[in-house]
């Protein structure tokens, strides 16, 4: 409800020219997405982030990557991958996973610049990620902080799709959740993850997983984009 109000507020700002043009273009393009269209008529961006931790409100994004999926095809040349310049990113929990150290961020861009580009890249696209709420939330948190707008893209969670495919109940035990982590699912669908725990490596694997899941769910009568939205 609060998010809905925020969106309305931002939309009226656009109408009154109180918001930067690129942000308004992003918002309008997302508002034009019609989730009641057949699935293949929308554009999807499968993405992943590498972060300093798992708290969407406290942790920071180190890198973000996405690739376009349209008409059942992964379109590699329409892809995005950037490192974000952050101070003191090293920590015991996440550093061993993403293995990006402060010194690797020499080429990185400022957060504001990267997220602004990200919003342009994701114009009019449905976002897709594995355990998407975390990635969407952390991006949204920082977008809100920097630009005072929420994310307008609808999003799809491949984790949820996989569970739906197996009709697994949402509140199942942690052991069964493990069967739906990216590694296990990729193994199940024989998807090779080229560079696990890099944003692009995971995004590409998720994109392949997405193609598989969508196909199987389509066979069960889910034909429209809205049938997949979380």
């Amino acid at each position: 409800m609060i998010k809905w109000l925020k969106k309305q507020q931002v939309r009226s700002k656009c109408k009154q020219n109180q918001l930067a043009k690129p942000l308004c273009t992003y918002i309008e393009s997302c508002d034009r997405i019609r989730t009641d269209l057949p699935f293949q008529e929308n554009k999807y961006i499968v993405f992943d982030t590498e972060t300093t931790g798992l708290d969407a409100h406290k942790d920071r994004i180190i890198s973000i990557a996405g690739v376009v999926v349209q008409r059942n095809a992964i379109i590699y040349r329409q892809s995005f991958e950037k490192l974000i310049k952050q101070e003191r990113i090293g920590n015991k929990e996440s550093s061993p996973i993403h293995q990006i150290l402060s010194q690797d961020l020499a080429e990185a861009q400022a957060e504001e610049e990267v997220l602004q580009d990200w919003l342009s890249f994701t114009r009019g696209a449905v976002l897709v990620a594995h355990q998407a709420s975390f990635d969407v939330n952390i991006v949204q948190h920082h977008v809100l902080k920097l630009f005072d707008i929420p994310l307008f893209n609808p999003y799809i969670d491949t984790f949820t799709l996989a569970r739906r495919l197996d009709k697994a109940s949402i509140d199942s035990s942690p052991t069964s959740n493990q069967a739906y982590d990216l590694d296990t699912l990729c193994e199940r669908f024989q998807i090779k993850i080229e560079q696990r725990h890099t944003a692009m490596g995971d995004a590409l694997a998720t994109a392949e997983l997405f193609l598989h899941l969508v196909q199987h769910l389509k066979e069960r009568g889910n034909q429209k984009t809205k049938h997949f939205i979380s």
Partner: peptide, 12 residues
């Protein structure tokens, strides 16, 4: 926009 590592996966 094109990411180098996205292409890399195909090249590999």
């Amino acid at each position: 926009m094109t990411s180098f590592s996205a292409l890399q996966s195909i090249v590999n």
